[in-house]
Amino acid sequence: MTRTLWDSSVGKKTIMAVSGLIMLLYLVVHMIGNLKIFFGSGEFNHYAHWLRTMGEPFLHYEWALWIVRVVLVAAVVLHATSAYQLSRRDIKARPSKYVHKKPRASYATRTMRWGGIILALFIVWHILDLTTGTVHSGGFQSGHPYQNVIDTFSTWYGNTIYIVAMLALGLHVQHGFWSAAQTLGAGNATRDRALKTIANVLALVLTVGFISIPVAVMTGVVS
């Protein structure tokens, strides 16, 4: 069955849909967690610490966090590999363009590939910035995420990279969530409006929720 999935264009698209939905679920949780920054450094840093003690005493310190990380890395790798292979197939299937061109499909639909590339680059930058601290602007201190976040959003490039990526995310989720429903066989005429509405709401909530943090730091609401 794994072979059937990977060898078929429909199966590979299923892998994209499932990995995309896993990342989407994570992003909703991640956004809610991030919003705790509005309640001050104590609560935010406490939450960050809890992420490491989550599951204790059944799990050891940081085990739960590492399980989440492994699942996410697997999702990103599967999603990006399928995206690359399916895109190659699609481009090969339509080698000559029409002379008479027409702009078509929505902006979100047309930007799935570029948007995905922006997101992939962002994920790398984001980890090097706020997880490992490699490219962090201030003096990165692990265990003090509140200060680290403020430092990141105190630079023009930190804000720019973050906001551009979150706009790309909104577009990607808007088409992606609805697409995933179609791929998984949940689409039909009566459900279409509901699915599109959920996609729009998810996209908007994620984008606004994530962007509210750099905006709050820039305007001094969070400092």
Binding site: S9, V10, K12, K13, L86, R89, D90, I91, K92, A93, R94, R104, A105, T109, R110, M112, H175, W178, S179, Q182, T183
Partner: peptide
């Protein structure tokens, strides 16, 4: 050699 679906709706 047909391409895959990206749900553009065309």
């Amino acid at each position: 050699g047909f391409g895959g679906c990206t749900l553009t709706g065309e």
